[in-house]
Amino acid sequence: MDIKPINDIEKDIIEDFGLFDSWEDKYEYIIDMGKKLAVLEDEHKLDENKIKGCQSTVWLVASYEDGRIFFKADSDAVIVKGLISMLIRVLSGHTPAEIIEARLDFIGEIGMMTHLAQIRSNGLLSMIKQMKNYAIAFQAIDNQQIDHK
């Protein structure tokens, strides 16, 4: 499977945002991505997958196939959903080690850091932590299996 390195995807996103000269264009793009985010089936919208913010809620699930992690997520707020969609685009399909090391500088570069700063109002920062936690957990499972061999 040929998957673009995380840094390259981040660069793509930063370039995309470089084309927008107004906040309207920027947010219309994010909203559009939010609307296009692959549907998360209701069966996954469980409390155990919930990352509760003060205002909006994020659901996140992860699967592990052939050394790569695949994320699926949803939110009740569409701008958060658009930001989630970008995070999935950047991180999904990568190895645990790559995800753990990802710096995700693009969020600041495209001027969306304020959304991360609002820790209490949306679950975005917790979502990134949770994505990394999945990577750490899957890596630990791998290491255990190597030990057993």
């Binding site: 947010y27 003060c54 205002q55 909006s56 009740d76 707020a77 701008i79 959304h115 109002s121």
Partner: peptide
């Protein structure tokens, strides 16, 4: 069909401070 938080974010970009949430 619109989440209050989305409205708050876009109003802020237009210089308007409202409170959203519970």
């Amino acid at each position: 069909d619109i989440h209050p938080q989305d409205v708050g974010v876009l109003l802020d970009n237009q210089g308007i401070a409202v409170r959203t949430g519970h």
